[in-house]
C-alpha cells in the first residue's frame, strides 16, 4: 500500500518549539496562519509583527521575516512596513491586552485608515504572560489575579467588544470572530484566515480575525475543560460570526 503524507507541519512555521503552555490555542492559530501562507504561496514576501504578551516570540515561530513591536503598537509598526513596501504581505499577531487595552488607538486607526494589513487577534479574556490579570475582554464576574472577587463592571468596566467596535469603520474589508475549539471549527477558521489574507492581497483594506481562545493555565482548567468553558461562557459574551465581508465579488 502506498502511503502519502496528508497533514504535516507547514513550511511557514520554523523549527522552534512553541513556548506556550499545554493546550494553549496560540499553537493551533499559528499553524493555521502558516498553512494559509504556504497555500497562498506568499511565504517569501510576508512579514510578521509579533506583540508583547505570551506570543512575544511569534516572530521566531514563523519561518518568515519578522519583528516584535512595543506593547500594543503592532498595527503602527505594520503600517510603517506596508507603506514602505506596499507589495509585501504584512500581518500582526496580537493578544487581548496588547490589542484591546494598551493598543486600542493603534488598532482603531489602522482599521479606520483601511490599512492594507491583516491582524490575527487572540482573545482569551486574560493576561497570560504576566500571570492571569484582568484583560479588557475578561468576562463579568470572572476571577483573575487582579479581580480576585470577580470582574465588577461598576469598578472594572465591561468586556470590550473589538469586532463590534470595528465593524462600522469604512476601511475594514474583512472582520470575523471565530473559535478553534473543535476540528470542524479549526478547518472553518483556516478558510476565514485565508479570506483575511486574500483581502490584503487584493488590496481591499484592513482585515481582522478574532479568535476566542483558551488559557487553561490562567483559567485554572485542563485544556479540555477550558474548551467547554469557552463554549459555554465566552461565546455568549462574544457572539461568533462574520461582521464585515467586502471580499465578495473580488477574486
Amino acid at each position: 500500500m502506498i502511503k502519502e503524507m496528508f497533514l504535516k507541519k507547514p513550511k511557514s512555521l520554523s523549527e522552534k518549539e512553541f513556548t506556550y503552555c499545554p493546550g494553549c490555542h496560540h499553537g493551533i492559530v499559528h499553524r493555521l496562519i502558516a498553512e494559509v501562507i504556504d497555500e497562498l504561496n506568499i511565504r517569501e514576501k510576508t512579514i510578521v509583527v509579533a506583540p508583547v504578551g505570551c506570543s512575544v516570540f511569534a516572530y521566531e515561530f514563523f519561518y518568515l521575516d519578522g519583528t516584535v513591536a512595543p506593547h500594543g503598537r503592532a498595527p503602527a509598526v505594520a503600517t510603517g512596513m506596508k507603506r514602505a513596501l506596499p507589495d509585501r504581505i504584512v500581518f500582526t499577531y496580537q493578544g487581548d491586552g496588547d490589542l484591546a487595552a494598551i493598543g486600542t488607538a493603534e488598532i482603531i486607526h489602522a482599521a479606520n485608515r483601511g490599512e492594507n494589513i491583516t491582524t490575527i487577534f487572540i482573545n482569551n479574556a486574560i493576561y497570560g504572560m504576566t500571570g492571569g490579570q484582568m484583560a479588557p475582554t475578561s468576562l463579568i464576574g470572572m476571577k483573575t489575579t487582579t479581580t480576585p472577587y470577580g470582574r465588577d463592571p461598576k469598578k472594572d468596566g465591561y468586556p470590550i467588544h473589538v469586532c463590534e467596535t470595528l465593524q462600522n469603520m469604512k476601511g475594514v474589508a474583512y472582520l470575523e470572530r471565530l473559535t478553534v475549539s473543535s476540528p470542524q471549527e479549526v478547518i472553518k477558521a483556516k478558510k476565514s484566515i485565508r479570506k483575511a489574507f486574500e483581502a490584503q492581497i487584493n488590496q481591499i483594506g484592513f482585515s481582522l480575525i478574532e479568535v476566542l481562545s483558551t488559557c487553561p493555565t490562567n483559567w485554572g482548567m485542563t485544556p479540555v475543560e477550558a474548551i467547554k468553558w469557552l463554549k459555554e461562557n465566552m461565546v455568549k459574551e462574544f457572539p461568533l460570526g462574520v461582521f464585515v465581508d467586502k471580499t465578495k465579488g473580488v477574486n
Partner: peptide, 8 residues
C-alpha cells in the same frame, strides 16, 4: 512605531 516599521 510607524518609523520603526518603515526603518525595519
Amino acid at each position: 512605531n510607524m518609523v520603526y516599521g518603515a526603518a525595519s
